[in-house]
Every structure is written in C-alpha cells, then in structure tokens.
C-alpha cells in the first residue's frame, strides 16, 4: 500500500531542473531510502513534499489526498513531517522545551486556554511535558533535557531534531541525513532508533549518504541523479545496479 506517492514531480529553478518528472511510491510501514550524489535534488524533493516549495509540475499524494500546494502546517496536521539537514532547533530553548514546543498540535489546549491557564490547562501542560520527556528518553538524550539546544553537540542535536518531529505525532517522517557527520558507532545506534520508530508503525523516507547505513536499514531504495530517478529496488538490487555506482563514483564498481 503506497502511503505517499510522487507523480511527475518537477521543480525548475531558473534554468536548472532540480527535480525532473519524478515518480516514486513509498509503501506504508517501510523504511524507504532516497539516495543520490550531492546536488541530485534529494532535499528539494523533501521541500516539495513538505510544502516548503511549490512544484513546477506534478503532484504529491499523501494517504490518497492531493497535498501538492498545501502549506506546511496543514501537511504536518495530516501526519507528514520532515527533519532538516543542518538541524533546525529552537536555539534559545532547552532540549525539553524544544520538544514541548513541538507538541504544539497535540496539547489539547486552545488559544484562549493558553492565555487564561486554568487548572485543567495546567494539568494538560504537565501531561505534554511528560510526553516530551518520554520522547527525549526514546531518542536517548534525556540526560541533556535542560541544556540549551544551541549548546548541544551535533549527535545530540540530530537526535533532538528527530524528537521534535516525533512530537507532531506523524504517520511518516522524512529524515534528511540523520547520521551526517557521525562515527560508525553513533550511526549504528541512530539507525537502530530509526528502525524502532518504524516498528511503532511510522513510515520513514530516509535521505542519507552513508551507504552502509542505507543498505542495512532500508526496505526499498530510490536513487536519483540530476533530479531524475535512475534506479529503484531493494538494497540487493541496487547494489548491483551499474547506474547507481556510476552516479556516485563516476565508474562502474560494486557498491555492496
């Protein structure tokens, strides 16, 4: 069952066709990888799907619904959320406050109550804080809950980015290079956590350069270059696909 479909998705920046007639289907409950060399259009695809950019052509279908020109906050309400490559965090807030803030859509408190703050609201706010703390624990960063987000080392910041995304109660998360710059141990730990998120029933679309991580975690992979799809299939299929190796390394060698 395809939960997310990209149909003929295209984006033109001046003379540059950043994304070119891309067709892709992400099956529900899977970890779907999106790979390609730098500048191949992966982050642009994320921006198009999550409402940060408007496509020049094509459609994005989420759970059977056309979300192509929807504003980002509405797309998030529908259960689709993305993380950011250079992690965007609320820098002056603590890690815990970041996640509490990210629970924005699910506090059960409307605007007037937010201002008035009676006892019922305070109880709901306490519940939100508990939930935020649980998310920090799930991502293994509960120990830095009271640290300012700007002071967090890169690995913790990336984990906090994912925690923020989880706080929106998504059905799919678009992860933009979650293990960028991590050593093998950190990478393995993070990929385990990502698998755990998938096991909770959340579909994952993963953009990543670390081939080991991608091959060992993804159920299905799409490879793009210059905005076009050049290969698609399981990790085993793609390993042997000559175009993929050529795109990354300029020559045909074995990627497995």
């Amino acid at each position: 069952m395809a939960i997310l479909e990209l149909k003929g998705l295209s984006k033109l920046f001046g003379h540059n066709m950043a994304v070119n007639d891309l067709d892709m289907e992400v099956a529900e409950g899977q970890i779907h990888g999106l790979i390609g060399p730098n500048g191949s259009g992966k982050t642009t695809v994320f921006n198009l799907v999550s409402g940060f950019l408007r496509p020049s052509r094509g459609k994005v279908i989420w759970q059977g619904r056309d979300i192509t020109n929807m504003p980002t906050y509405r797309i998030t309400k529908l259960g689709l959320v993305r993380t950011f490559q250079l992690t965007a965090l609320f820098k002056e807030m603590t890690a815990l406050q970041n996640v509490v803030m990210s629970c924005h859509l699910h506090t059960g408190v409307n605007l007037w109550q937010q201002f008035w703050q009676d006892k019922k609201t305070r109880r709901k706010t306490a519940a939100v804080e508990q939930r935020a703390m649980a998310l920090l624990e799930q991502m293994g960063i509960a120990n830095v809950a009271q640290e300012r987000a700007a002071d967090l080392p890169q690995g913790y910041a990336a984990a906090l980015g994912i925690a923020n995304a989880l706080a929106t109660e998504p059905k799919i998360i678009l992860l933009d290079e979650p293990v960028g710059g991590m050593n093998p141990t950190e990478t393995a730990e993070t990929m385990e956590k990502i698998k755990a998120v998938r096991d909770q029933g959340i579909t994952i679309l993963l953009v990543e350069h670390d081939m080991n991580a991608v091959m060992s975690t993804c159920d299905e992979i799409t490879c793009i270059n210059f905005g076009c799809k050049i290969a698609e299939g399981t990790p085993q299929n793609l390993c042997q696909h000559p175009e993929v190796a050529k795109a990354y390394l300029g020559e045909e060698i074995d990627l497995c």
Binding site: R82, M101, L105, T107, A167
Partner: peptide, 20 residues
Amino acid sequence: RIGDSWRALASEEKLAKSIG
C-alpha cells in the same frame, strides 16, 4: 504558550512551520 509560539516562529520559522 502563545508567546512561546511567537518567539518560536521568530527564531526558527522553518521549524515552527514544520511542527504545525
């Protein structure tokens, strides 16, 4: 919380949009 949302959207609009 309304004030928090205001400060959030002022400091990191991308993330604020993203969390709804």
